[in-house]
Design a protein around this nucleic acid. Structure first.
Lengths: 334, 334
DNA sequence: TGTGATGTAGAAAAGCTTTTCGGAAAAACG
DNA sequence: CGTTTTTCCGAAAAGCTTTTCTACATCACA
């Protein structure tokens, strides 16, 4: 059926070793035989099997990408960037949506290893130190994006979430807001954003209210739900910091239903700065994560590992608040 | 390093053939040795190499998914569904964004074959009959989604685009609109939607205007741009049928900038009914493609092919218009 | 006890590539 | 022309699994 290296060798009147050397540009081959072999390869449309090649100790040139859910635009874009950079470096990526489910994650990891992927990029949150430590010990290439694990020496690329949270809050405070709520997802990155929020509030000597802090899922519904709860408070906030864009959109939706004008009655800030931030009405102020750069870096980190690099590294990129039309100083309180 | 079948065999005091039989539940093995082998396997945490297995003619349990761009929510959701169904059937999916570039597509296809994927799902448009015919001839499993190729006997799952286009237009006509524009992407599926549009216009004996039909890219910008052109027409349309949701959002954005109220001054209908349709303000009427069902079907089709099924099949699902708040009868003309 | 049937396990080849090492041919040198 | 060096190529093993076919052991039965 498909031609093998034997077919090429026979057709070219040489041994398979010679063909292999031509393919890989190794050993010494006379120009004449090289040309002969190349010609036959083209003629038969021969493509070496990466499977067989990998079996001899070479790479599969495939990496696994674990994300919570590709349907979240942030991860969709991240995936795309990872794929692009992988492609540039000669790697394919197999997509694994974990829904942040630890069991599913573990199953995916063992499956990927069975399939001999060269390495794994972990973008979904995963707290099983046991498993991660295992991977590190057997020197299996792995890199984290959008999360780090303080107690493990594992490559990671993150954005400074604390700083991002601080910047947003500081910005809202500077606008004159005092009643600032935050809606976050239950995830380490969001926790840090919330820490930044707290610090900024504290630094400004503004009263910190526990019921201004809400935890929910990273979905439009989650944001919608929490916003409604916040609006029902005796002293509703004048600004809401949503820890990702989906949540922010939920907040906007809830506000619209109550005839709260944005930004006049309520300022809203998102996080991630996905394409939706520009899409929504009014355009959403949001914290830009340099997805492109992060993806690139994480792939590069992983590929270096695959190529045998030993040293480990944490890369921290800085976020940037992009101000659009969803924020303004609070209107005169009545 | 990683244990092999030899390690298990040695440890269990049997031959590798026996171990293989235990793994695959083939041949006759006494309960005693089976248990012994299983125990050792667990003990060593042995995972058979799918690579080596595939080399002997078995499957890699991996399929390729070619899509234009994962950053488009429609394809993001499609990917997720394909992955989920694949997962259920034991297949991983490697993600390939083609940007509808034919060369990139061809490169991806040959790469995937080199990696011995078991089959390919093609969701990005691809007109190279040469290549497709080649795949069919060598009986390489392949299935199309969201497109079909009339002149090739190739498995496909589509939605009835003509009908979808007809339904939207008919609906707008029934509301009383006479000036209905359409903005489409340059792709076969969109072409069919436009055919449906034409037919509905013709059936209603309404005048068909060539300058109500615009072609652009499947992006927010594309929709924005075309909408502006349409608004500048001497007789601007009272309704715009956008052939996908991204375009519709661009249209809405342009309308907003001109202070055109939706739906009062302009009705807008989208296509795909992605999550964005609910997100946008006002919620967008859009044509539902049964993504979940389509994805499931296409995976099932492909897997059947992989398992040796010979017969070929075209599955056509029916679209459904979901009416939300972006459409209403045209206001009294001045 | 001998014969045949049945159940169990292993040796070996196949699948496709890479790599090492040795040998033959060609070239260089005196 | 004989010898040494260089150049080129191939035989064979390794990598991990599956599968076939043979062989041995066990058992039932006459």
């Amino acid at each position: 059926m498909k031609p093998t290296i034997y077919d090429v060798a026979r057709e070219a009147g040489v041994s398979i070793a010679t063909v292999s050397k031509v393919i890989n540009n190794t050993g010494r081959i006379s120009e004449k035989t090289r040309q002969k072999v190349l010609k036959v390869m083209k003629q038969l449309d021969y493509q070496p099997s990466i499977l067989a090649s990998a079996l001899t100790g070479k790479h599969t040139y495939t990496i696994g990408l674990l994300i919570p859910d590709i349907a979240n635009p942030f991860f969709a874009e991240l995936s795309r960037r990872v794929e692009d950079r992988g492609q540039e470096l000669g790697f394919s990526v197999v997509m694994c949506s974990t829904d942040n489910d630890p069991d599913k994650t573990v199953r995916y990891i063992t499956l990927l290893k069975q399939k001999s992927v060269d390495g794994i990029i972990l973008a979904s949150s995963f707290e099983n130190h046991q498993v991660l430590k295992g991977l590190l010990e057997e020197n299996f290439p792995i890199a984290l994006i959008s999360q780090e694990i303080p107690s493990l020496a594992i490559d990671s690329v993150t954005v400074d979430d604390f700083l991002g949270g601080y910047q947003v809050t500081e910005y809202l405070l500077q606008l004159g807001h005092q009643k600032i709520a935050i809606v976050a997802e239950k995830a380490p990155s969001n926790q840090k954003r919330m820490d930044g929020y707290r610090k900024a509030i504290a630094d400004a000597n503004v009263e910190m209210k526990e019921n201004y802090m809400a935890i929910t899922q990273a979905t439009v519904e989650g944001g919608y739900h929490c916003a409604n709860q916040l609006f029902d408070l005796p002293e509703p906030p004048t600004a809401i910091f949503a820890c990702n864009d989906l949540i922010a959109i939920g907040v906007i939706k809830a506000a619209r239903e109550r005839n709260l004008k944005i930004p006049n009655d309520l300022s809203v800030v998102g996080f991630d700065n996905t394409f939706m931030a520009e899409m929504v009405d009014p355009p959403l102020s949001s914290v830009q994560q340099p997805i492109c750069e992060m993806s690139r870096q994480v792939v590069d980190l992983l590929v270096k590992k695959i190529q045998g690099e030993k040293s480990r590294k944490r890369v921290v990129l800085l976020p940037e608040l992009v101000v659009r039309k969803s924020t303004m100083p609070p209107e005169e309180q009545q």
